[in-house]
Amino acid sequence: MAAAEITDSLEADAFKKLYPDQFYARFIADGIRPDGRPLGRARTASIGLGAVSTADSSALVKFGNSTALAGIKLEIMVPKDDTPNQGQLSIAVEMAPMCSPDMRPGRPSDAAQVLVEQLNNALLASAKAVNLDDLCIDPGKAAWVAYLDIYVLDSDGSLADVTLLAAVAALATLRLPHVAVTDGGNVVPSSEAAEAAAPDEMAVEPTKLQLRSVPLALTCGLYKDQLIVGLTAEEEALVATSVTTIVDDQGRLIGQLKAGGRAEMDIARLQDCIEAAKLRYAELAGILQQAITQYDGSG
């Protein structure tokens, strides 16, 4: 191979640029990855809750360099006629041009739309994490619509995992204010309504939105027959195929997506991915719980 002969005279950076595959293969042969992780370890996660003070709830999530910011804004709508006692969760993903050299400003990229569909599938269609009935204020008259906007700030792989954790963290800390519907059909904060009725009653605390299931994802890749857990953007370009597995707190499989690629996976490999996702779940759930406790404690 030409690459092997000229390596010695090349700087490591140049070698990486010119022969990314050979560069990576040398690391994998030694059972380590260029960023120092072993093959089976995903990147460290960090969650910052309440990152946006103007949003009703928000979360900034980082997996290594991959960063997603999720924010939820609540608005009141009239429920749809066919679902009079349901609110709405509307998910949007924005991949800012700064997040990756491939992104261009302008209309939403296909990658962002695929992420929207994956989040919709995970949160609503499959896990039913948010019961839309919980967003109802007064059947047929008023309901909450939660606009969940996710901004990918740094796209360094495993975006499905990062955006899902950001979405879950924002939803888990969402509080629904107490409101009342007046006779005229206007929605007012219930403290005002209560004050009008009985002025000495205390204003009620906003209620937390209850998540029915907490789905979290892990993306694994297959490189020269080795399972690589928690992919970076560089690795995503090199692996033969990648699989995103979503499990929830009840141990159910919420989703597994393997979108083709240059290699197949047998059932044992798919099972390995599920096991890896369960291990990662325990890790992430701990971090999420800690972040929520800390956030609730700080007010």
Binding site: S126, D225, Q256, K258, A263, D266, L270, I274
Partner: peptide, 28 residues
């Protein structure tokens, strides 16, 4: 398969897409 995997034991899948929550055994 060009990247023929010696370790691959059983029959394999090229793509999987799921919708809905299910126990892992049922999925398999």
């Amino acid at each position: 398969w060009p990247e023929a995997s010696a370790a691959q034991k059983g029959p394999a899948v090229l793509a999987v897409y799921t919708r809905g929550a299910m126990p892992v055994e049922d999925y398999l």
